[in-house]
Structure formats: C-alpha cells, structure tokens
Design a binder for these strands. Structure first.
Lengths: 338, 338
DNA sequence: ATGAAAGCGCTAACAC
DNA sequence: GTGTTAGCGCTTTCAT
C-alpha cells in the first residue's frame, strides 16, 4: 500500500511527475517515465482509485444495467463488455434489475448518481425519459445494447432483416406454409424486437406473393418451454400444419424441435425449424439459425464509449457500424415433405 | 449535484452533522436527522462515493470474481449477491476471469488492489495462495462460494451427501446397476466437487453392499452435450447397461435424457435419470434432481461479509449454516424395468 | 519537462 | 448532540 509520495521519493521526482508519468497525461521525459515506472513496480504501487477519482472527476468505472443475468444474451454481452473494459483499465459495476420497480428506482436514484461511474451501458432495457435525462444531466454518456432507447445511441440489430433472412432461407427451400413463433405483446414494451421480427417474416412472405396467415403465428415468451408449447399447437393442428417454423429465438426453436419429436415428426424431414441467436446449445441440436454476436456487441459498446471518455485515444471508431448477423445452416432445415 | 455543504446550509447545521445524520453513525437528534434528510431530498443530494471512500476508507463496494458468466450457477449466485448488496447500499463490481491467465493476473495485481472494494466474493474458483494472501494483506475479507478455498471461509455444499442422496433415491426404488456421470479430472483442480460427488455415489452403493463398477462411471464436462455423449456410451453398452444414471449436474442429466430418447429408451420406464442442481430447465424435462439454491448462496455470502464489514448491524448470522439441498422427485425416475 | 501548492467532497477526531 | 478542523491520496493548474 505504498503511496504516490513514496514512489516520488524513490524515483527522485515530485508526486506531480509521478502522476503524469503513470497516467500518461502531460509531458514527461522518457527517462523519468521509465524511472517512475520502475519505482512504482518496486513498491507494488497501485493508485488509489478513490483519491484519483476525487481529484480528477474520472472514475474509470462504467455501470452496466441489465434486466437479468441468467440469460444467454445478457450474460454474453456483459462478458464482452467486461473484457473490453478490463483491457482499457476500467472496472464494470453491475446493476441487475431483476427485482423490479423498487430496485430499479433505487439504482437510478442513488447508485448511478453517486459519481461511481463515468458512463452507463444499458442492456436489453428501455429506459424511461426520466432515467435517461437524469443520467444526461449528470453528463454521463449512456449507450444501449439490444434495444433502442429513444434519443440514445444504441447498438441494435436490424431485426427486420434478420427475421427476413431466416424466412427467405425457408422460402428458398420451397416452403410456403411457414409459421412464426414470436414474442408476445409484453415483450414489445421494452424493445420492439418481437414486432420487428414479425415484420421481417411477413415481409419476406409478401415479397414472394404469400399473404401471412395469422393462424400460423403464435406468441411465446422466448424460453424453451414457451417455444415447445407454441410449436405443439402449431404442429398439432389437423388442418393447416406448417411445413416450417421461424422462431424468434434459438431457445424457442429448440423447444420447437423437441415438440416436433414428441409429436413423432421428424426434423427436418417433416418440418423445418430455424431460430435466431446462435445460442450455445444450437450446434448440439443441429439448429439452423441466424447468428448474432452478443460478446462482440458488448465490446463494441465499450469501444463506442471510449470515444466519449478518452477522446484522442486509440479510437476504434466502431460506433455506427451496423451489427453483423449471419445465417448458419445446420440440420434442422430442408426441402418440404415430398 | 449539490454538495454536502449546501445541504448543511439548507438544514442549518454543519457538514459534520449532515454526514452523521445521513450515514447513521454518531449521535444526531431525531429532529435534526429529519431536517437533514429533508434538505438532502430537496436538493437531490447524493454522497460522492469517492470523497466518502477516501475520507472513511470504506468503499461500500464489493468485488465479485467468477470464472464465467454464461453459466446458470454463477449467474444465479451473482444475482443473489447483487440483490443482497443493493439492499445494504453496496455496489458490486464484477471481474470475469474467462479470459484466462493474463486477465486473471491483471485483476489481482491491479484491479482488486486499487482500494475499490471492501471485500471480495470468489465464486467457483480456487484462488492461489498468493492471490489469497495479497487480498489478506490488504485487509480485505474474502469469501468463497461453490468451491472451498484453503484457509478461507467458504460456502460450499456437502457434495458427498448430495450425491449420496441422489443415489439412495435410485437404490430405494430398487435399482442396482446405477451408473454415474461425473466431472473429469480437469474439473477437480478448481474445486473437488467431482470427486466428492463420486465418493457420495460410491458410498451409497457400498452401504447396501454393492461394489461400484468402474465401467459404470463416465467423466464429462458438465455440459448438456457432454452428458449426452457419456450417456450414449453407458446406455449403448450391450453387456452391462445400467438401469439408472446419477449425473453430477442437471445439464448432463438432461443430455442423458436426450441420449436415452435417441436410443429409443423410455425414461423412466427403461432407464431412470437423476441430476443435481435444479436448473431452470429441469422442470420442463421432468428431471428428478437434488436442488441446490445458488441465489440463496449469493445472498448468504453477502450476509456473511456484512458481519465483517458492518459489525453490530442487523447481523443475519447465517455464516456457518450448512447449505441446504433437497431431493425433488419428478418424472425421470421410477422402479427399474420389471 | 518538472515542482509547489491548492483543492476534489467528504469523514472522524476532538472540542465544546 | 453539534461544530471545527485536519486530513484521506491523488490531479492539475500555474510557475519556473
């Protein structure tokens, strides 16, 4: 727990110089920079982040707000953000809003405003105007991932195009009775992904002259059991059984695969199923899917933030680049029966 | 961004009194406490955590170190810890060590030592002696969850008893050829859960006079595909097919269920399968399992820390209480065939 | 390129 | 019970 003054003494310079040498701002000759670095190392010196933050106004810490941790997408984005932040010497403090209203209010009213963070990343969350403006008023950059926030720079996939791509894959195989398992209305509140994906699905159908059949749409909750239920209904219908399903998430798609099996239907011989995500289990289930890359999204969010936070640093300038997605064809899709 | 002095002025007291009134330490009359609280609220005052930390030496922040986020157990423990910390007014800063050696070193050498955290919780990680002692030297309480750390207070399940319970459930149904899918040696390095569970499994068998058959043990990697592979081998063996499987995790158990199905075996009619965890998908698969409660473990870790950190506060005194576990019987286990 | 010195906003003795 | 005051350990003008 050596202090900056001990380092200064050992290096034979002033504390001001030590600060400059170690932080990299301001002029320091190469010679002293080396001397200081050596002294710091010898003493196992590590800056006190509190003292540093108090004096400089920068905390080198970013807050990450998520609706839940136990979810592949959120966890992956956080992992990506964490490792990018670590590389930049930043800490990540996590605010999980699973608890609901009270918790959320307390996070915004007390925690994020304590000068603890330089910026915040909101994942899969639609913030209220009040929340956004209170952060804004504090001068804290805010960036959204996986869900557009009004008036805030957000990394968000082109959900319409993604669902369209999945649907086009099935159309190109010759399917015409294609069902869709999407999110229910309750998921549309927080980000419009469900409707956007439905729009993409319907758009692809209409483009080839097929009018979407409302009977071939089922809402579900993005979980595997939810997808299972929905697919059971779709595939068990005696009159209008689809030959293919586009599910809005891989977990729902996997649920659909299991539902098909339980009905004695063979995937992809009797029914083709495509998901969206490229979840870690999708390979195992042979699921054809449109991959998104959440780890990368976390990294990209951090890169974008760094441009605000460290102007003139090695700016990766990745902001504004549209998020990539990619069709991955496995064994859950094929030409329709006969 | 009002400061403490403005609050003091508005309330007509000194800054010291404001500090005392808001933090709850030291004597303040009820009347002034109310006045101060009102003034603080009127001004939207929030303490600057940096200034407060610098002056007091306490950060009200705890570091949580995990090997990975994208895993049910870790994510659940973190969720539990996060919400418990929030209630106590603490922040959680997350250190994810997925990246490996370099990242890990940097976390320990630079991040945790920056006076940023008051304590650290290590989840599912075996820390080296050097890591433990550097934290110790800084006077930072350290507590482990899900993996005993030498010389450190850890919350850890009685893995022997848990595996024994799962095995006894099968024995009591009349099974005698019971296989075990456990962790490979590589997982034993970080915490001895795999061997302990195997010991529990073998102990239960020996207690009823059955000598464990090494041919009925398969190592796997705790994942669903890993469990699938292992179960395929076990169940495909023409000579010594087990009538039941104890898997060391629910994900491996679910993989086993799928393997059985793919072989045309009916669960539980042809083969019984029991897991350990009570993973979120276990209900869906009808899996009999021994539940552990990771959220609760995260909360308990925080409660234990608070006893160090806030002596004399409402101590939940939960430390040292053994972690609960519970057999949950669903539809994946039954009497053996005929 | 480097040093001196004035804070950053709060807490904790200590005095009353 | 409350006020006064001296720091906490750094960063950053401003000189030089």
């Amino acid at each position: 727990m050596a202090g900056i003054d001990e380092v200064a003494r050992l290096a034979g310079v002033s504390t001001a110089t030590v600060s400059r040498a170690l932080s990299g701002r301001g002029y320091v000759s190469d010679a002293t920079r080396v001397k200081v670095a050596q002294a710091a190392q010898d003493l196992d010196y590590v800056v006190s982040s509190n003292a540093s933050s108090l004096a400089s106004g920068r905390t080198r810490n970013v807050g990450v707000v998520v609706p839940s941790l136990n979810h592949w997408f959120f966890a992956s984005v956080i992992e990506g953000a964490e490792s990018a932040l670590l590389r930049q010497g930043y800490d990540l403090t996590l605010y999980n809003l699973t608890g609901g209203g009270e918790e959320r209010k307390s996070v915004f009213d007390h925690f994020l405003l304590r000068q603890r963070v330089d910026a915040v990343i909101a994942i899969g969350l639609e913030l209220t105007e009040a929340e956004v403006s209170s952060l804004h008023a504090m001068g804290k950059p805010l960036i959204g991932v996986g869900g557009a926030i009004a008036g805030v720079f957000s990394l968000t996939m082109d959900d319409v195009a993604v669902a369209r791509l999945a649907t086009e894959h099935l159309l190109s195989l010759g399917h015409t009775r294609i069902a869709h398992i999407g999110g229910g209305k309750e998921f549309d509140l927080d980000f419009h992904l469900p409707s956007n994906r439905r729009i993409g699905y319907e758009g692809a159908l209409r483009d080839v002259g097929i009018e979407p059949d409302p009977g071939l749409f089922r809402p579900a909750d993005f979980t595997l059991p939810g997808g299972y239920e929905a697919a059971k209904q779709l595939l068990g219908n005696p009159h209008n059984r689809p030959t293919a399903i586009v599910a809005s998430s891989d977990e729902m798609a996997i649920g659909s695969v299991l539902a098909a099996r339980d009905l004695g239907l063979h995937v992809p011989h009797d029914v083709s199923i495509v998901g969206i995500d490229d979840h870690q289990l999708s390979g195992f289930f042979g699921l054809t899917t449109v991959a998104q890359f959440p780890r990368r999204q976390g990294e990209q969010a951090v890169e974008a933030l760094m441009e605000y936070l460290e102007p003139g640093k090695d700016a990766p300038a990745s902001a504004g680049v549209p998020l990539p997605y990619e069709l991955i064809v496995r064994s859950s899709t094929a030409r329709p029966p006969q």
